[in-house]
Computed example of a mutant assay.
Amino acid sequence: MKEVKIETTLQLFDDINELPEDIKSLMSIAIDARENAYAPYSNFNVGASLLLDNNEVVIGNNQENASYPSGLCAERTAIYYAGAKYPDAKILKMALTASSKNKVTDKPIPPCGACRQAIAEYELKQDHNIEIYFMGAKGKVAKSSSLSNLLPFIFESSVL
């Protein structure tokens, strides 16, 4: 038997004001998208914004449904729209923010597992890392230089 150690490196910013201007703008767009989320069941609003290599910015927010599995997360809403509207564009950067109507979200909130898998698919498809910035409603912002920092054992098509 051999033990394998996996390490992840993230950058942590004290708040949105410490971000570079282009990322601060991208996060502000995600915050606006978060405010328009449809989350009457969870009361947990999530917003996402993507910067593409054609300089387009695509947004998404979570969309819930009384039949819970039928809803869709903000990240996948944005990614799938980008894939449909700009199929040849690469996703360069992603900003995510989440807030709860039930409690203060002041820690970075990363993408859920299903969204991590969707982001991984696009990173592999485009053969280019996606920088991911994520935060709660306020407070620290985390940056991952690639989805592989958040999902080290990616399930991908070569195993099919």
Rank of each mutant, 00 (worst) to 15 (best):
Q11M: 12
V46E: 14
L12W: 05
S49N: 08
A39S: 15
F44A: 06
T8M: 13
Y41S: 03
E35F: 07
N45M: 07
I29Y: 06
V57G: 05
A37Y: 08
E35W: 02
N61S: 12
L10M: 08
V57M: 10
E56T: 03
S28P: 00
T9N: 12
M27R: 02
T8Y: 07
L19F: 09
S42H: 10
L26R: 01
Y38L: 11
D15H: 14
E56P: 02
S49T: 07
M27E: 03
L52K: 00
L52P: 01
Y41P: 08
I23F: 05
T9S: 09
I16Q: 13
P20T: 04
E7Y: 13
I16N: 12
L10R: 10
A37N: 00
N55M: 03
L19W: 07
N61V: 05
Q11Y: 14
S28H: 03
N54W: 00
A48H: 01
E7R: 11
K24W: 08
G47W: 04
A30P: 12
I16P: 00
N55P: 04
R34Q: 13
R34G: 13
I29T: 15
V46P: 04
I29G: 02
Q11G: 03
I6Q: 06
V46G: 15
G47M: 05
I59S: 15
A39M: 12
N43W: 07
S49I: 10
I6H: 02
T9W: 03
N61L: 01
